[in-house]
Nucleic acid binder design. Structure first.
Length: 272
DNA sequence: AGGCAAACCTGTAAGC
DNA sequence: TGCTTACAGGTTTGCC
């Protein structure tokens, strides 16, 4: 579910609830996530005041005043919701973080692909290691993509989804960026011109910014801290639209499989 | 080294 | 209606 725009929308909706507030306890109901939840390690960080709510790639980081942090990755179906202390456990609620004043944060994840990890001050995590630049930040652009692609035969869409190349881009936005730039998703990365990399970098930034403004994409599971879904699924040009007419030329959108993932594209507007 | 398929787990939708 | 199959936003592992 959650690529960069979804995690950014979660971060923004969570920050007003958490900034400056104290987390006073944790209750793990079912810690069998992608990485087993270590309840004792989480409890050892608490109570603690939240210093900041940050995002890197698809990872949410709740920075604590002590210098420790809570790392949350939503996997495919995770949610992190603010709820009143009176709310009952629902199916697939995995753990609760208790906030001073009574509310709580509940981590909910049907597929269990997510993670909630306690990070000691200065401690890293494999999800944060070796990441490329943030596509909406400094240090990202066509020149960076061109450099990273030099000599690579990998198709451009899976190339964009490689977090070591650029952080936070998943299947939906890789498809949408290729369409917006007029680049065929199967074109070998190492063969694109500098001008086309510039177009692709600009298209990626535009697509991500548009999705954040729309509250992200909610295909099924995604919701922000208030439980609100996003609307970008109504604005995708190719993702999930196999057989529908292309918004630019009217030809039917096609689907192909790359690295085991569905790719949607327009065979006329997107060229090698 | 680079790139791919499969695996992790569960729910839903489509097909028969 | 009920069973079976395919597929889903991410990441890691292991194989070629």
């Amino acid at each position: 579910m959650p690529e960069l725009p979804e995690v950014e929308c979660l971060r923004r909706s969570l920050a007003p609830h958490l900034a400056g507030r104290r987390i006073v306890g944790v209750t793990v109901r079912d810690g069998r996530l992608r990485e087993p939840v270590r309840e004792a390690a989480l409890a050892a960080l608490l109570p603690a005041r939240v210093a900041a709510v940050e995002r890197r790639a698809k990872v949410l980081l709740v920075r604590l005043a002590s210098g420790a942090a809570l790392l949350v990755h939503l996997g495919m179906s995770g949610r992190l919701l603010v709820e009143p202390a009176s709310a009952p456990w629902r199916p697939h609620d995995r753990l609760r973080l208790h906030l001073e004043g009574g509310d709580r944060l509940v981590y909910h994840d049907p597929r269990r692909f997510g993670r909630v990890v306690a990070l000691a001050p200065g401690e890293g995590h494999p999800l944060l290691a070796g990441l490329g630049p943030e596509p909406l930040g400094e240090g990202f652009g066509g020149a960076h993509l061109a450099r990273a692609a030099r000599g690579r035969r990998r198709p451009v869409k899976p190339f964009l989804m490689d977090g070591r190349v650029v952080a936070g881009v998943g299947n939906i936005y890789a498809c949408e960026a290729c369409f917006a730039a007029g680049i065929h998703p199967a074109a070998p990365a190492g063969r694109l011109s500098a001008a086309r990399w510039e177009r692709l970098a600009a298209a990626l930034r535009a697509v991500l910014a548009e999705s954040i403004a729309a509250g992200g994409t909610t295909l099924r599971d995604f919701a922000d801290a208030e439980g609100r879904g996003g609307l970008y699924q109504l604005r995708t040009r190719v993702y999930g639209r196999e057989g529908e007419p292309c918004v630019a030329c009217g030809r039917p959108i096609r689907r192909l499989t790359q690295s085991g993932r569905s790719t949607f594209y327009c065979p006329r507007c997107q060229r090698w």
